[in-house]
Computed example of a mutant assay.
Amino acid sequence: MVMRRLLTVGLVVLGLGGGLLGLYTLGNSRTTQLFGEIFARVETSKPLVALTFDDGPTVRFTQDVLDMLKEHDAPATFFLTGKEMQENPAQTRAIVEAGHQVGNHSYSHARMLLTGPATVADEIERTDAAIRAAGYQGEIDFRPPYGKKLVTLPWYMSQNNRKTITWDIEPESYPDIAGNADAMAAHVLEKAQNGSIILLHVMYRSGEASRAAVPKIVQGLRQRGFEFVTVSQLLASRSEEAP
């Protein structure tokens, strides 16, 4: 009954004329959702950017990424899955102890477009519990798997005063540069602006080029005058500028 009511609300908001195309566009939008706050970039006059990583943690690559960030003194935000955190608790604690922000990327990394309310709550709350079990005390932001959301997920987020975090720069989404660290770094340097949220996938073997791009991105953006902050710090910069 709840799911049917939410879908009805969504269709009314969209307007019947939008049809399936409207639903598809809304479900994939990085900047728009039916309920609650969503951020693909933060409006700020300060030269701040957030480097974010999705998925993991993994035994093989977590420490390599942490060592790289430590070497370049760069904070990051890790959107982790609950299942992988439970499988790799030591790596989760290592991220927390290194001082990075930890975000919620669902438990199973399933597409949450037509998921029922109980499943949405379970996916998010089980992951929250794994994050807290690792000792993380900060606010937990959420990023939907594949960036997909429609009605029930945004409704849950709004009812629980949670923020949805997407991104405005994802070099891996361009097949012609995705396997080339230099090309990906150049793309980020070209596209970055105040408040940008950069997305990379660095936790698996397939992310070799993305891992190699990280120091190039950090060094290049710093040369352009940008400062790296976590997503929470980036969001806080809004209130600091409020009149």
Rank of each mutant, 00 (worst) to 15 (best):
I197L: 00
E227K: 08
R211F: 03
N194Y: 02
A185E: 02
V188K: 01
T166L: 09
E240W: 09
N104A: 05
S158N: 14
V42G: 00
F226S: 02
V2R: 12
Q159P: 11
D67V: 02
L26Q: 14
E170W: 13
A90G: 14
V12R: 14
A110K: 12
H187A: 10
D67E: 09
A242L: 15
A40N: 08
F61T: 03
V2K: 15
L20Y: 10
I140L: 11
L199T: 05
E87T: 10
P171I: 05
H72N: 15
L16T: 12
H109P: 07
E125V: 09
E97V: 03
T152Y: 15
L34G: 07
G195L: 01
V9H: 13
H187F: 09
G56C: 09
F226A: 00
D73W: 10
G103P: 01
S232E: 08
A213Y: 02
T115M: 15
A74S: 08
L69K: 02
E208H: 13
T92D: 05
E208A: 15
K149A: 12
A50H: 02
A192E: 04
T8V: 13
D176T: 15
V42P: 00
E170I: 11
V188H: 00
I124N: 05
D141P: 04
W167R: 02
Q137S: 13
R41F: 08
L48N: 03
R143G: 02
G10E: 08
F61Q: 05
T119Q: 14
V214A: 01
G19D: 06
P75R: 01
E172P: 09
Y146G: 04
G17Y: 08
R30D: 11
S239H: 14
D128N: 14
R222P: 00
Q193F: 06
G17H: 11
L48K: 00
S196Q: 03
L221S: 01
R238H: 07
L20E: 11
T77L: 01
V102S: 01
I217A: 03
A186L: 04
G147P: 00
I169P: 00
A242W: 15
A90H: 14
S173F: 14
E43A: 13
G22V: 09
T77V: 01
E84W: 10
N160G: 10
A133P: 04
G207K: 05
F78S: 03
K70A: 15
T127V: 06
Y107K: 07
H105G: 05
D54G: 06
Q233W: 01
G17P: 11
E97R: 10
N28K: 15
L20M: 14
E227Q: 13
G19C: 06
G15N: 08
A212N: 06
Q223M: 03
L14K: 10
F53H: 04
H105L: 08
Q219F: 07
A192W: 02
P57I: 05
